[in-house]
Every structure is written in structure tokens, then in C-alpha cells.
Design a protein around this nucleic acid. Structure first.
Lengths: 331, 331
DNA sequence: AAAGAGCTTGCTACCGGTAGCAAGCGCCGC
DNA sequence: GCGGCGCTTGCTACCGGTAGCAAGCTCTTT
């Protein structure tokens, strides 16, 4: 396992200077066809390819984009990651996947991403406090930040989200039309802003119908178990007559937990005894086992948009894109 | 947004040479406490942190590990990615997530990873042909390769897998004990080696009971839909009397598709009319809606092992780790 | 034939670190 | 008072590219 060949070595083999070698690998550079052929032949023989590390150091461009994720429980992350990596790779970028957790928090991750000179950071669905950035860090040339699939709580940091206002308007309008009158909301983790947005508009549009949303459940995190636990305790302490007749869950994973508790633990019928809605449209939400009414985020449009901002093809400012209500049997 | 401070600038501010600045940031370097304090104070003021790109170029060590993934349909990828990123980050490494697809194949991905000088490449559950590496690429100092959660088909490339032999021994022994006698196997994509291993041992251990596995279904990929479609066509063309009495699916996602078709489309009882098993133990496999009997891969042990190989704390050679049979109600 | 335009090539300087040599310095013992 | 040891510091050279200037060359134009 010998070391990689360098431009200098190729130059020696081809009988030119190393700068001519570089030019053979630089599109649009000034070089004769003859020289280029000789260099490429030598490069082929020596198995030379340019060292991108050295290039990045010199150009101050790594073509690497850091993606921060702090919640791997929601399967919805996977199709997003697939689309993000595919789109960025198509644009010649590569994803650095950073797991934000208690050992490796936002500050440390940002510092690391900056030291590695990434071209941009995408905060994918991860909560981010204002204080974090006040950590005297934003001051010096941090890479540009973008928030994906969650609202940006920070002035000047653009976000690309599913339009919660349109989504909840459609949802509430559908539910009100169906005759539901006692709505409840289940949020994942209270502090997060997306929860606030969805919850906010849910309450807002019910308010237009003269109905207030007084029941707010909160799950510990975004997982089946958390959704199941939250609804289980609600049903345990609330007599049937006082229960809500429709439950809007912040996402599908929570909704699935809620559905299983309703059907299996309490033997209730959905949607007759209680209707349930989710948000995301996971593959498994469409199965007969769940058949969950939900709202599909415009995944590809969101990813395309944030990638365009990263590459500079689109002005970087907060954008909300409309998704689609998916009617199934739970509401 | 000014540029990052460099060691040279900090040196000027602290009144020392840039090498002394470097030493203040190098653990164990020879420097007086006095100098270190002055340098760190200046660095703090200028918000200096070492540029890891430049360091990588000089040391030939990037502390970046490329992870190749070519199938984002299986939710099982997510907990693995979570553990992988967390463990590698704890070891001071960072994950470069590469999406292998038709636009960006293994050869291109390897070339790119090599040009970026990653310290290692982890092929996570991705199929890899011998020819790919014969692409006159392995010759020159490619980063070391490791295969995770799939067998290595290539001599000299270590793999970290769940022990299929033990797993299928336990599974078949359980099924035979329960009285099943007409086993069938559903594979995801025929060419992949893990499928071959699991299928191989499934047939092997049934053979010990004098029973041969003649029914082999194959799904187009690893998704709920593919599993559902495959079983649907089987049930459609096979009269009840000739059907298998237990179906082993290569993973949980396929098994879920199969379960929904059995129960919802054909109104059959599980496990009375046909038992079903999966492999992976997804979070949703444990829900009342599925309650799937499955086999849990030793996720953390596998991740710890491959990370130890990457960091050099463990000899790099193929390892199979035993998992655990999870008995639920489908078998 | 001379001059100028335009392409090609090599060069210096630089990106921001690391490695390891050698000089400077303080301190000790003899 | 001098030699020697050991720590600290600065230095040169280098990692493998990029940027942009300037010299060399060809070819055209007058």
C-alpha cells in the first residue's frame, strides 16, 4: 500500500513542471492538447488524483457540508438524509454527519465544523438556543448556518420548513368539517419550536371555529413509546365523557404510539371513539395496520431549497413550503 | 464575518513565534507555563482554534471516517448511524456520510473518499463487488475498508456482522420445536451476501431436521411494499393446502409487509395459518399492531467492534457477534 | 523584418499547520 | 570559572495544492 502520487511525481514522469500537471486537471486552464495528453497518461500510470485536502487548504473551500442531527428515533430522518446526501453529492458536496448529544453538544459541534472548514452547516431538525451562538463564536467567520425542518429561533439564520400555517389550516378545516369538536394536541418535547408552531396554528384555526384546544399532552421525546406512554396516562386519568374526540400528534411516530394504546390497551375504536392524526407520512403510516391520516412534508422541495441556498443558487432566507394532507382512516 | 485567526496572528499578539503558539495547543509539547498562558490569552482574545485542514495535510491524518450507505429504506439504519456517529465522535473521529446510488457509485465514492484522505471507510450494509476494487484502485494507498452488518465478499476486507449461524440455529430450533414443518424464506435482493448467509443457514438447520426449504420468495428491495408485494403474489398463486406454514423474512421491514398482506388482504391468522419471523427488531416491530417475532442484532457490540478496528485498538479481522431471539406473537 | 498579440509554461509566494534540528538560556556541579 | 545538561524557543523544510506574474514561444500583422 504505497502512498498517493503527487503532482510533482506526475510532473517528473511527464517531463513537465508540476504547474502544468495541475493545469491538466483544472477545467478551462491554459494548456496545449499535447501537454494535457502527456500529463493525463502519466497520471493514469501513477494513479494520480488531486489531493482535495491540499486544494481545500489553498482555496478555502472544502465542499463539505455539516449536517447536525440530534434525534435518531424518528424514521422520517432517513428519507431526508437520503435526499440531502444525494442532492449535495450531485452538487459536488459531501455530508459530514454530526450527532448532537450530551457528549457532543451544539457548541462543540460548531467549533469542530468550523475547524474543519465546512462550507455550511445544516441544522436538521435540531433545536438550537440563542445563547449557543452568543458563545462568542458567531463573531469570527463561522460557516453559514441553515435550519431544515424546524423553525429558526435566531434572527438571521434562514430556515426551510413545511408551511405549518397552511398545513394546520387544512387539517383543522377537515376535522371541523367532519364534526369533531373536542380537539387535543400531543407535542414531542415542549421546548422545541416546531411543536410550538404546529400547536400554535392548531389552536389558532380551531379558534376560528370558536373552539379552544385545552388538552395538550406532551411526550418525552419523538418515539413510539413516548407517544404511547403520554396517551396511556391521559386515558387512565380522564373519564370517557371528558375525553377529546380527536388527537393531533406532532408527528407520525407519536401518533402510532397513540393508536396502539387506543386500540390495543383500551379497546377503543379509531376514529369513532377518538380520531388521530400524525405528521410526516412515514412509509409504515400507510400500512393497513395503522392507516394513519397524516400530513406529508414536501421533502424534496425542502431539500432542493436548502441545497440551493447552500450552493448559493438561491437567496438565503426563511422559506415555508406547503405539503399535502393524506386522508386515511384514522380521521 | 471576518476570517479565522491563524497561529501567526496569535503569535504576533502574544509576542512569540508561531511555533510557540502551536506548542501551546499541542499536549505534551515543551513550553513554559508562562508562555502557554500568554498564548492562550491571546488565542482567546482572537478566537483562535487550530485549522484542522492544515493539520490534516501535514500529518496525513484527517480523523474522518467515510460511511457508505446504499439503502435508506430500512429504518434499522438509523439506530446504527446514531451509534456509529456517537462512538466515532467519542473517539475524536467524524463521519462522512456517503449515499451510494446510481449517480454516485462505489468507485466514485471510494475515489472521493480517498481524495479527501479519510482515515477509513466503513461499508455499512452495502453490497460490494469484487470487480469494483479491481478497478486498479486498491493498488495505491486506499484507506482501509471495513464492512459493517454485511459479509465481506472480498478477501482481506474485514467484516463485522451478526452471527447468522447462531441466529438461524436458534430460530430454526425454535420453529421446529413449535411444530412447523413447511418453512419458506423471503429475501430482499438476491445478489446480496447477507441474504445468502441467512438463507443458507436457514436451509442448513432445517436440513438437520430432515426438512428442505423449497419456497424462496424474493422482494425487489428492503421495504414494506416489496415485502407485501412478494407475499401477495405468492399467496395469489398458491392454494392454501400447498402453502408454507412459516415464513422467515430477511428483515423486519419485509416481515411487516408480509404480515399486513396476510392479515388484511387475505384475512389469515398469524401464526395459526402462517407464522412470520423478521430480523432486526425495529422499534415498531414490538408494537401491538405487529408484535413480530424477530432476532435482534447486537448493534452496540457491532458498532463498538468496528470502531475499535478503525481506531486500531482491535485487530482488523472478520468478526461475527451473536444476537438475541425476540419471541413475540407471530411465531 | 520588426513589432505586437496571445497562448503556454515555469516561477515565486502562499494556504496553515507539523517535524525535527540547532541555538539560546539558565542552572548545576566540579 | 568553565563545561555540560536540559529545557525552551526559533528556525528551515515540508505537506500538496492554488494564484497570479512574467518570460518564452508562436504566429500574425504591417
Amino acid at each position: 500500500m504505497s502512498k498517493r502520487a503527487t503532482a510533482r511525481e506526475v510532473a517528473a514522469a511527464a517531463g513537465v513542471s508540476k504547474w502544468t500537471v495541475i493545469r491538466a486537471f483544472t477545467p478551462g486552464a491554459s494548456i496545449t492538447e499535447e501537454s494535457r495528453r502527456r500529463v493525463l497518461a502519466a497520471a493514469e500510470a501513477l494513479n494520480y488524483t488531486p489531493n482535495l485536502l491540499a486544494r481545500s487548504l489553498a482555496t478555502n473551500l472544502t465542499h463539505q457540508v455539516a449536517v447536525f442531527v440530534d434525534d435518531f428515533a424518528n424514521p422520517q430522518k432517513l428519507p431526508f438524509l437520503e435526499a440531502l446526501t444525494a442532492r449535495l453529492q450531485a452538487e459536488g458536496r459531501v455530508v459530514m454527519l454530526i450527532n448532537i448529544n450530551t457528549q457532543f453538544d451544539h457548541v462543540r459541534a460548531l467549533l469542530n465544523a468550523d475547524q474543519r472548514q465546512v462550507d455550511a452547516v445544516i441544522l436538521f431538525g435540531t433545536a438550537f438556543r440563542d445563547e449557543t451562538l452568543r458563545d462568542r463564536k458567531l463573531s469570527k467567520g463561522m460557516p453559514p448556518l441553515f435550519v431544515l425542518a424546524r423553525d429558526s429561533q435566531i434572527e438571521g439564520i434562514p430556515a426551510v420548513v413545511c408551511d405549518a400555517q397552511l398545513a394546520l389550516r387544512d387539517i383543522v378545516s377537515h376535522l371541523a368539517g367532519k364534526g369533531y369538536r373536542r380537539p387535543g394536541f400531543m407535542a414531542g418535547a415542549q421546548v422545541l419550536s416546531t411543536a410550538l408552531q404546529r400547536k400554535h396554528y392548531f389552536a389558532h384555526f380551531w379558534g376560528r371555529h370558536g373552539i379552544s384546544v385545552s388538552t395538550e399532552l406532551s411526550a418525552d421525546d419523538y418515539s413510539w413509546k413516548a407517544g404511547a406512554t403520554a396517551l396511556h396516562s391521559y386515558l387512565s386519568i380522564t373519564p370517557p365523557a371528558e375525553r377529546i374526540d380527536v388527537l393531533m400528534c406532532e408527528n407520525d411516530i407519536l401518533a402510532m404510539g397513540a393508536l396502539d394504546v387506543l386500540r390495543s390497551d383500551f379497546g377503543l375504536r379509531v376514529p369513532e371513539d377518538m380520531a388521530v392524526l400524525g405528521f410526516d407520512n412515514l412509509e409504515l403510516s400507510g400500512t393497513p395496520a395503522y392507516s394513519l391520516t397524516t400530513y406529508e412534508q414536501p421533502l424534496h422541495a425542502m431539500v432542493d431549497t436548502v441545497v440551493a441556498m447552500v450552493t448559493g443558487d438561491l437567496e438565503s432566507k426563511t422559506v415555508a413550503i406547503s405539503g399535502q394532507l393524506i386522508l386515511r382512516s384514522t380521521a
